[in-house]
Design a protein around this nucleic acid. Structure first.
Lengths: 217, 217
DNA sequence: TAGATTGTTAATCGATTAACAATC
DNA sequence: TAGATTGTTAATCGATTAACAATC
């Protein structure tokens, strides 16, 4: 019986994980829920409640949580130890920037290839020597995904006009997770049950910040 | 007495707004809460509850909400009619990509300038003719913000190492809203009360999608 | 010891869902 | 008319906060 963890909890877990990375403490050091509050802004009560909920009971009174053990627990929940291979569809500026995104290395996420339709991009490679990724044509997607069944996640960075069409294609080829960077809400057909889409994180962030600007308390 | 609207509601409001843009209906057409559910994935009950909460009572039984009126209401809440001027700090690939982001035009967000420290970037301009934006040096930030007091929002696209330092600088110069694109949680000093930061939307999205990949129901 | 910090429960708060009378 | 859809209330659900005994 696996309990389902809400995305809000996952988000906070990723905050704790990032906090640990940032602190860069020796593995045998301890970190308290109060310390995590200082860095993440999540209250220490919430931190302990989350750990309790997730069955993380490795704390020592008066000390806190051992960094090494906590890392292990958080990694397990976030599936960071398993890692993930992703492709980037759309090799324009955002796509290329993401392909070098620092976050990926430390978090065990590997970009294996990019896809585009522009003939001047297709066939080239980008990235640092030793870590170069090929840019392939979008119509090679199907073949690529069949050859690389471990690739289940796509970052979608094509222009707004092409976003829905491209997403439908990705779903058709068996992709199970899509992060959509186009400022457009993409629909997953109702009959598709096992595909997760994260829509429009940039656009939503902008609306929120503009709203807050005009409604400060 | 203005009631405070949570960011969750703001997020859904932006979904409704995006849905209207997408539908592209004549202004005198009507759209029902059920139709909004189809496009946004937000249940029709939730839609009506949100409208009720926000005092949007323009519906007609058996028809729905007139597109024109609904646009007006949603724009008012999202402050789209007032618009927003933003700067982009960090003129690398993500910064440059964002400076041409299509979302901005339709949503009344104007990028007025970019900032960087690289001498080969500073002094040039980017963007389409007629809409060119200058790239200035980061040490011109203070002067720029003083000359342009309407600019209160910054998109932060500098490398991870420079993110916190740059944010502190922005806050010092009076910026009130920051969207952080570095994969790092940035802290606002506790004594600062009126600055809003949206942290790490890309990193969080990735953690969520990886988590979901390994925990499909 | 005294102080700090955990794990856990209970209380509160807020958000979502369901239901339905009103009515076009 | 009958069916569809709103506005609104009440019920449910879930998430956060507060409190505190246990104990290192």
């Amino acid at each position: 019986m696996k309990k389902k963890i809400s995305l809000r909890v996952i988000r906070r877990i990723s905050f704790y994980y990032e906090a640990l990375l940032k602190l860069n403490l020796p593995e045998d050091a301890y970190v308290s829920s109060k310390k995590l509050e200082d860095i993440t802004g999540v209250s220490c009560n919430q931190v302990r409640q989350d750990f309790f909920y997730l069955g993380i009971s490795i704390g020592k009174q008066k000390k806190g949580y051992q960094v090494h053990k906590l890392f292990q627990e958080l990694k397990k929940i976030l599936s960071i130890d398993r890692g993930a291979k992703v492709i980037i569809v759309g090799a324009g500026r955002i796509g290329q920037a993401l392909s070098n995104y620092k976050l990926f290395n430390e978090r065990n996420i590997t970009v294996t290839a990019l896809f585009d339709i522009k003939t001047d991009l297709v066939g080239s490679e980008i990235g640092k020597p030793g870590r170069k990724k090929p840019i392939l044509h979008v119509n090679q997607l199907d073949a690529y995904l069949k050859e690389n069944p471990g690739v289940k996640i796509a970052l979608l960075t094509v222009p707004e006009e092409a976003a829905q069409e491209t997403m439908d294609k990705l779903i058709g080829h068996g992709v199970k997770g899509i992060v959509n960077f186009a400022p457009k809400i993409l629909k997953v057909p109702k009959e598709i049950r096992d595909v997760q889409v994260i829509n429009d994180c940039i656009g939503t962030a902008l609306y929120k910040i503009v709203y807050q600007l005009y409604h400060k308390r």
